[in-house]
């Protein structure tokens, strides 16, 4: 995420998940609907990618986030282009 703000990065060798805590309103949509329960609320309610190893890059958290506060990126594609259009290519 190129925007300034209170950005929290969660990553492993393949995936980078960024949470913008300044924009996040802790609505809980990403947490509840994550099919792999990657995301867990921290003490303030913000999502933390505790189980990032289970992330399947379905992008649902990013797509459904009403606040543009979570971004999931596959590391190899970070420089080339984002994941925005994946769902449009079918």
């Amino acid at each position: 995420m190129s925007l300034k703000g209170n950005l929290k990065n969660y990553e492993n060798e393949k995936i980078l998940i960024t949470v913008n805590e300044e924009w996040c309103k802790t609505c809980g949509i990403c947490l509840h609907f994550c099919p792999k329960k990657v995301l867990v609320a921290n003490e303030k309610g913000y999502p933390e990618a505790k189980n990032i190893a289970d992330c399947i890059l379905c992008m649902l958290c990013e797509l459904r986030c009403p606040d543009f506060a979570i971004k999931v990126e596959k590391k190899e594609s970070i420089v080339s282009h984002g994941q925005q259009n994946r769902d449009l290519e079918d």
Partner: peptide, 29 residues
């Protein structure tokens, strides 16, 4: 810098005024 949808934002206007969980942001995305 990643060319993502935030390139279309008027960044100074964020965070937006909608309530937590409001679908307006989802549709905007």
């Amino acid at each position: 810098m990643i060319k993502d949808i935030t390139q279309y934002f008027r960044k100074e206007m964020f965070p937006h005024i909608w309530c937590p969980g409001c679908g307006n942001g989802i549709v905007l995305g």
